[in-house]
Design a protein around this nucleic acid. Sequence first.
DNA 1: GTCAACACTATTGTCGAATATCTTACGATC
DNA 2: GATCGTAAGATATTCGACAATAGTGTTGAC
Lengths: 228, 228
Amino acid sequence: MAETGADRIYELLHADLMRGRFEPGQHLRSSLLREVYECGISPLREALHRLASEKLVIGHGHRGFRVPPISGEEIRDITSLRQMLDIEALRRSIEYGDDEWEATVVAALHRLNKATISMTGDGGADEWEARHRAFHRALIGACESPWLIHMYDLLYDQTERYRRLRFSGTDRGKLVRDVAREHKKIMDAVLERRADKATSLLSAHLEDTVRYVLANIGNVALVTDAAE
Amino acid sequence: MAETGADRIYELLHADLMRGRFEPGQHLRSSLLREVYECGISPLREALHRLASEKLVIGHGHRGFRVPPISGEEIRDITSLRQMLDIEALRRSIEYGDDEWEATVVAALHRLNKATISMTGDGGADEWEARHRAFHRALIGACESPWLIHMYDLLYDQTERYRRLRFSGTDRGKLVRDVAREHKKIMDAVLERRADKATSLLSAHLEDTVRYVLANIGNVALVTDAAE
DNA sequence: GTCAACACTATTGTCGAATATCTTACGATC
DNA sequence: GATCGTAAGATATTCGACAATAGTGTTGAC
């Protein structure tokens, strides 16, 4: 997959940022990252510049790179934008998608539900997230707009980062079962080709996520401040 | 502005890509770029990685970077997305913008028109483009969504790249005077706070651009193929 | 006791050399 | 004559050392 060393580090660092390995606001020292990913400085910096362009890290000239801080305002902003793009993309998918597309959606949800059942421990969370991403990606996969998908991906990364912040005292198991029902309802509406219903369900689904994040964000505010 | 050497190269290379200094499809050899921008390999590669993330260059593992090819389908795709984002951003701007915002819009159009009158030669084109960008940016500047603006910027870069392709036998002077009228109409609708009218005018304005590009794209197809 | 200038340390950013990969040209084989 | 393999050259990528900048703590003056 990764053709070059910089690609490899990009993927690993991207995954670690998604799973919240580093705290928001944390200074990503090159010495630390070089040890973690066992690499030289050049490919590391190249990966960091790509991530900076995607706003998954923030670069300050001569002061290196940091994990972006989190804010309720930002996740609201990102979600409102994602709603707009997701709705458009799903609408187009429902319009253009064929049987084959439907099959990929059904398969993706099946995979996701399997992961939901067997999800235990942290490794399971990574797998669940990968399948969750794949399901949402499948939904809009027939929109026939590479750029819409690209923008969608950029925003999905951001919401995943917020969603996977380490909140204390949250029953993740219950949460995951709740969204499973929502996914099923979205898929049913999609298969019935009811665009209005499907898009409004999807929009509400995103709304639920941002509510979940905002309800818990007070806890992580402490973490943010404490970050060195 | 540019805090570091890599930032400087990023800005210069970005500007050169915008003004079509390199042909679509052209292989951007590091040896060439090092001479052009008088720099070492490290900051150059960092800039290229950032540009690759914005899809202003394309990186192939172990085969370096290239200027993206152009296609009618892609500019259509980009424009349809830009219409969606621009409309939303302008609508919000009209809703939230205050007198100060109106003033920046009026000032930006004034600057643009001045550049339109005095535009002669290539240097003038750069200045005109900068002011054109600033005007459109001012229109949506009050939308109060940093992410919407960010996405807008990414797409604006793409459309500018297509728009500034070197088409043969086009009366650029006439073109620029035509769009001046459109800009005026958009601004008037904005100042009257007529959101529906303003957004549909803006949407049509983008449509005109893509039509202009598509009408001329046959000429550059030759250039694309010839690019080494 | 406070503030500012200075030196020192930590860290980032950049350069040139070495390594790995790709491309092309050439020749052998079918 | 075409195709495959191989070797040489060109190019991209990565490594380690150097230079430049920011951060920090200390000293000294007022």
